[in-house]
Design a protein around this nucleic acid. Structure first.
Length: 856
RNA sequence: GCCGGGAUGGCGGAAUCGGUAGACGCAGCGGAUUCAAAAUCCGCCGAGCCAAAACUCGUGGGGGUUCGAGUCCCCCUCCCGGCACCA
């Protein structure tokens, strides 16, 4: 081997070798346990960013580790290629979205290859390819026929100047990002997946996912939001005759505290009242302004207006005023809520603002409410001023009230979900066409299988709006049923649809006769899925839902797609800026800034810049560090090592140039250690014989390290501590002197294990090092090192000695010493006697293998 | 606003089941090597007191449980992720 570590030579060499040998090509093999390792596929935005490098390095370490452990490993890669950025780039650069996307894929693929990932590239797929989305369209038509997909009106952000639908991120402070016009809510027809039909299963199956982080499961549970409540009918006429206004509440116990009801602006009652009330009509129009995003709805000022209409309390028959409120959404429940200001914070604030009565009907079980209320009392408790129900507890009252309402025909128990059906229609061009034909006589007809795929034209020019909506050659067609003139649907699907099944298609990407075949059942479920925490709800819930849809049409046999999930944190970096004369901030890239005597200056002019805090790497703050620059300067192994060492995978990772240098230094030290060792001649790894104290200790540490690193990677998925343990072992080994054969054989054993343990993290350098240590050895195919239990045995251990919980000394005892012996030894230890100050021991706590605490 | 998470030296982080707080690395300081520098190697490195030892304090803030709390419970502050059309 070369005396000097040259990543620029060994890395391309290793990558070429693996590619020629097709070292990572996967095939179905029932003789080994399978391990399907999947990282979330990237959107081809142009070039790789650090978040990708982190994601794919974590996946690669797990894939390579399991390969060494004897698993049949599949690690594929592909492209989440449809989406909004391609349309924006197309407008900005006057190119077609398809061409832009394909050239990005080509460049990013080259970058991914330079990272040395153990990927089976023969399975690569891009969701914008007709051979991929064809099957998405096929499944759509099946689900449409089954009734799983249906059409209804839904509210979108409408830009009245550009005449386009806007994504939530394109609405800034209530205005369109390009036109600046005040955004309006508009109802348009859309296709929906009945995900609510699966709400119960999506919720209960979370309990069968022990390999998922608890926080992700909690977020999904809350998102699905199963709640047990009561549907209550407020008659529109006194004495309960005629039509009713339906509301849903989880707090039926507060029914006697209702002082008004609130309906959405779109509610029929509101519309009816507005017909003779210009002020109300104006208010309803105002409610239509602004975006549909829930965050905006929830933070805006709560406003309302009296409709003048009354409904009647189902029990007391008292009139209750009906308000229109901007915070009530037509899409939720019945589009109406009963308001109980005394026991709901939002209603309390609203009642104060509009001087509505506040009537308390619940009090704590063991105290009285101090009236008038200063704030809503939202706990459950005991009812009062509630007719026959007074004195009952909240839970009891809910049951009883539901029962009485049911007998009156004015309501019943109901379970509802917060989860709403999944609207997948997008009025955009760069997406998968929805395979529906609109026929004036037959209605919505799914495109027959032999006419699929409905191919998206790629040679287009785009400005504002989707080009296929203006392209008769695309939308003019004949009805498959009656043969008459018809029009093709021009909306495309939400890109979350493509990313909901790609993991299954990787099992059989070449299949052109069906969506999936038996290979999917061999590989699924994914054994380890890795991606950003930002996908905790939407993507992961949709993919789980889609898997169940595929199961129910017989395509897959499992219930869940991802057995284990790892959610990695963001990559963040320091930001720097200078104030411009106009007061705006000019953001400077960290690569152009250096720190001299604690002052941050721009390299080009040496003048100071201002540090703006550490934030997620982004274009807007110009704090992205280009992975390519790091790979070019230090090599992929250094980038990989730094990524894995700087933070545990689930936490955010702060970029640090100095830290990268440190990682590179470690690799140089490792290279030199192996080089110096092998220069002295070949030697076999230690296999037996008496050892002195120093070598016994080194072997013990070696095997402890193997045990720790194995546990860290496999169970804890915490690579930073695994690397730290290997560094400690290296430091300990460097302190062991001697060039005799026995010492060298123990060092050989240690170096072989170190190189193999580092191989999943820094595969290129380890490929050379293992060959140097064991001529003829091949990295791919080498097994993971085994722990020698005999080397772990010790005869004496050290316990911490505490007096009253404070550390006062250390105590050496035999490894097999019993509690009584430890206690006796502790009580006569000089440190113990000193700090007991003559008091007798009241209690002695012995924690085996850890410490002994004397309480006086 | 609602849901989920986080906060530990100058910095990134470690402490896995309630049991030595600060592993490992970075930065810094001192030394070796060198004509010199870079690189490399060795040592020191939470704060207070301080010559040192000893001791005291110390895990965002406030309270609690425990022989013992970074870790568990309650309250608060700040930061981050998601909120259904960014992916």
């Amino acid at each position: 081997m070369d005396a000097i570590y040259r990543p620029e030579v060994i890395e391309p060499d290793a990558q070429q070798h693996w590619e020629e040998k097709q070292a990572f090509k996967a095939s179905e093999d029932t003789s080994k346990p399978k391990y399907y390792c999947l990282s979330m596929f990237p959107y081809p935005s142009g070039k790789l960013h650090m978040g990708h490098v982190r994601n794919y390095t974590i996946g690669d370490v797990l894939a390579r580790y399991h390969r060494m452990k004897g698993y049949n490993v599949l690690q594929p890669m592909g492209w989440d290629a449809f989406g909004l950025p391609a349309e924006n780039a197309a407008i900005a650069n006057d190119v077609a979205p398809a061409g832009w996307t394909y050239s990005n894929i080509e460049y990013m693929k080259k970058q991914l290859k330079s990272l040395g990932l153990a990927i089976d590239w023969s399975r690569e797929l891009a969701t914008c390819g007709p051979d991929y989305y064809r099957w998405e369209q096929w499944l759509f038509t099946k689900l449409f026929e089954k009734g799983v997909i249906y059409k209804k009106m839904a509210t979108v952000n409408w830009d009245p100047v550009d005449h386009t639908v806007l994504a939530n991120e394109q609405v800034i402070d209530g205005c369109g990002w390009r036109s600046g016009a005040l955004v309006e809510k508009r109802d348009i027809p859309m296709y929906f997946f009945r995900i609510t039909d699966y709400a119960e299963e999506l919720l209960s199956e979370l309990d069968n996912l022990p390999g998922w982080p608890e926080r992700v499961k909690t977020m999904q549970r809350n998102w699905i939001g199963k709640s047990f409540g009561v549907e209550i009918h407020f008659p529109l006429q006194p004495e309960g005759k005629g039509d009713v206004l339906k509301v849903f509440t989880t707090r039926a116990d507060t029914l006697f505290g209702v002082t008004y009801v609130a309906v959405a602006a779109e509610h029929p009652l509101a519309q009816q009242a507005a017909a003779h009330n210009p002020a109300l009509a104006e208010f309803i129009a105002e409610c239509k302004q602004g975006s549909v995003a829930e965050a905006d709805m929830a933070t805006m000022e709560k406003k309302g207006m009296d409709t003048g209409l009354k409904v009647y309390h189902p029990f007391t028959n008292e009139p209750v005023p009906v308000y229109v409120a901007n915070y009530v959404l037509m899409g939720y429940g019945e589009g109406a809520v009963m308001a109980v200001p005394a026991h709901d914070e939002r209603d309390f604030a609203f009642a104060r603002k509009y001087c509505l009565p506040i009537k308390a009907v619940i009090k704590p079980t063991d105290a009285e409410l101090s009236l008038p209320l200063e704030a809503a009392y939202t706990e459950s408790g005991v009812l009062f001023d509630s007719g026959d129900f007074s004195g009952r507890t909240s839970d009891d009252a809910i049951e009883k009230i539901a029962l009485v309402l049911k007998n009156l025909g004015l309501g019943e128990r109901r379970t509802t979900f917060r989860l709403r059906d999944w609207g997948i229609s997008r009025q955009r061009y760069w997406g998968c066409p929805i395979p529906i034909i609109h026929c004036p006589t037959c209605g919505d007809v799914p495109v027959p299988e032999d006419q699929l795929p409905v191919v998206l034209p790629e040679d287009v020019k785009i400005d504002v709006g989707s080009p296929i909506k203006k392209m008769p050659s695309f939308y003019q067609c004949t009805c498959p049923k009656c043969g008459g003139q018809a029009e093709r649907e021009t909306d495309t699907m939400d890109t979350f649809v493509e990313s909901s099944w790609y993991y299954a298609r990787y099992a059989c990407p070449d299949l052109d006769s069906a969506m999936l075949d038996g290979r999917a059942n061999y590989w699924l479920p994914v054994d380890q899925y890795i991606g950003g925490i930002e996908h905790a709800i939407l993507h992961l819930l949709y993919a789980r839902f889609f898997h169940k849809l595929m199961r129910d049409v017989g395509l897959v046999s499992t219930n869940e797609p991802f057995a284990n999930l790892l959610t990695q944190g963001m990559v963040i970096a320091e930001t720097y800026y200078r104030e411009q004369p106009d007061g705006k901030k000019l953001w400077l890239n960290p690569a152009d800034v250096e720190t001299v005597d604690g002052v941050h200056v721009l390299k080009s002019d040496g003048k100071p810049v201002i540090a703006g805090g550490t934030e997620k790497m982004s274009k807007s703050k110009n704090n992205g560090v280009d992975p390519q620059a790091i790979i070019d300067k230090y090599g992929a192994d250094t980038a990989r090592l730094f990524m894995m060492f700087a933070a545990p995978p689930e936490q955010s990772l702060e970029w640090s140039d100095a830290g990268v240098e440190g990682a590179h230094r470690f690799l140089k030290r490792l290279w030199k250690a192996v080089h110096d060792h092998t220069q002295a001649g070949e030697v076999s790894a230690y296999s037996g014989g008496a050892l002195g104290d120093g070598l016994t200790d080194l072997r013990r540490q070696l095997h402890q390290t193997i045990a720790k690193v194995t546990d860290d990677i496999e169970r804890r998925k915490q690579f930073n501590t695994a690397i730290a343990a290997i560094m400690e072992l290296m430091n300990a080994m460097a302190k062991v002197e001697g060039e005799d054969a026995l010492t060298r054989s123990v060092k050989q054993e240690a170096l072989e294990a170190i190189v193999l343990m580092l191989a999943p993290i820094v595969p290129h350098i380890c490929r050379i090092l293992i060959k140097a240590l064991k001529p003829g050895a091949c990295l791919v195919g080498s097994p993971w090192p085994a722990v020698d239990e005999a080397a772990l045995v010790r005869d004496e251990i050290e316990l911490m000695l505490q007096v009253n919980g404070k550390l006062r000394g250390k105590l050496k005892v035999a490894a097999d010493a019993g509690k009584d012996a430890i206690e006796a030894a502790a009580l006569v230890a000089p440190e113990a006697i000193r700090f007991m100050e003559g008091h007798p021991a009241r209690k002695v706590v012995v924690v085996p293998g850890r410490l002994v605490n004397i309480v006086v």
